[in-house]
Design a protein around this nucleic acid. Sequence first.
DNA 1: ATCCTCAATAATGTCGACAATTCGGCAAGG
DNA 2: CCTTGCCGAATTGTCGACATTATTGAGGAT
Lengths: 223, 223
Amino acid sequence: MKQRPLREDPYHKLREAIVSGQFHPNERLVEAAIAERIGAGRTAVRAALVRLDQEGLVELERNRGARVRHISDGEALEIEEVRAVLEGMLARRAAARITAEGLRALRHVMTQMRERVEAGDSIGYSELNATFHQNIWTAAGHPTASHLVGGLKSQGIRFQYQTALRPGRAERSLREHETIFAALKAHDGDAAETAMREHLAEVLDTLRWAIDSQHRTARWLPG
Amino acid sequence: MKQRPLREDPYHKLREAIVSGQFHPNERLVEAAIAERIGAGRTAVRAALVRLDQEGLVELERNRGARVRHISDGEALEIEEVRAVLEGMLARRAAARITAEGLRALRHVMTQMRERVEAGDSIGYSELNATFHQNIWTAAGHPTASHLVGGLKSQGIRFQYQTALRPGRAERSLREHETIFAALKAHDGDAAETAMREHLAEVLDTLRWAIDSQHRTARWLPG
DNA sequence: ATCCTCAATAATGTCGACAATTCGGCAAGG
DNA sequence: CCTTGCCGAATTGTCGACATTATTGAGGAT
């Protein structure tokens, strides 16, 4: 019995390549090329593409092949909106069910986040941010919602770098996380949901700002 | 250029067969058998199974084939919970954006629902119920959330018959819908979200009741 | 110069065959 | 009687070949 390393699975390999930005949005994904690139047969690649299409990372058109799905600005906002309500629900549940163990893990992550902010390391902070949220999903014990949120996150990942660039965002974000943590520690479901939704409303605002400033610079250059 | 009738697409055919209950939960789905049954090649059936697996209607195990996914009671409750927050959000948005046209369509559906209740036609009412909610999704203009809710709905469909059986459920449900409609008509987002969430909390309670009574009768018969 | 036609090309969709794997039964051994 | 190992049927996974379909580009007519 040999275990199957997930990293060798064509689906995961291709998914990782797309999410990590190795393919540009709207770039065509030719089955034969992908097959050779990741060292798999065309059949397996096909199956992977079907899954990724269903997942929303790839767009599959009959007889016209696959391309990396381009997430429009508006869609990114929609995704963030849905994330907000789902994570709000997860935070509420987490407040009711989180254990001492879970709280300790969260506190540990927050300590690291504080370090990253003080060091001015935006990208390191961003990764810890993801860890923080994932810990909450785990504590919530709600596979259905976690699965959905995970899928949304992978779609919106292209925009996550942009939000980190806003001046002063990290400090503010850190305070918001502390509020969430306090609510969880107090097992206050209402407060946890509210704090999480406010936090993600802030993220949404930042995203709007990032998109706006993008449009502004885009008009400056060619004009 | 010939249009492709969706009903002939193996994916939709198989999906419809599963959702409509032509296969039991946990029933094995042998590729060759399905292929012959719906008149398609094994390749197409394979692709359909992959999609349905990603969608959560089918469970695909490596080298062990596919089976209809069994949604446990707990999972059904989780699904309903997620549906509640998502539809709540959609109702809020719908309140802000619904047109006179959309309101008229909703009113028409509600009239029919009233008729079905008075006629004691639970199953007809249930279908109109689905239509009512779909109209709200449309009015909300939020493809991302609508898509997710649609997927959840198909997973939980097995339980929807059970909830309709509770005595007096239909009348109460009708009143709840009227409340939602009033909030939409008044373009009151807060009220719409609250009404929708309360409505679906009721549905969730009814579902808990259905599951409980199921367990009771299950223990009576063999005990 | 522009538009249309049509062949050449490249990619996808489908099929059949074969290899790999799982599962059930059956017999040998403890 | 129970466990273990092995064989065979059934099913899935993969590959290669071929049909089908879009796309591209050249050439000719207006």
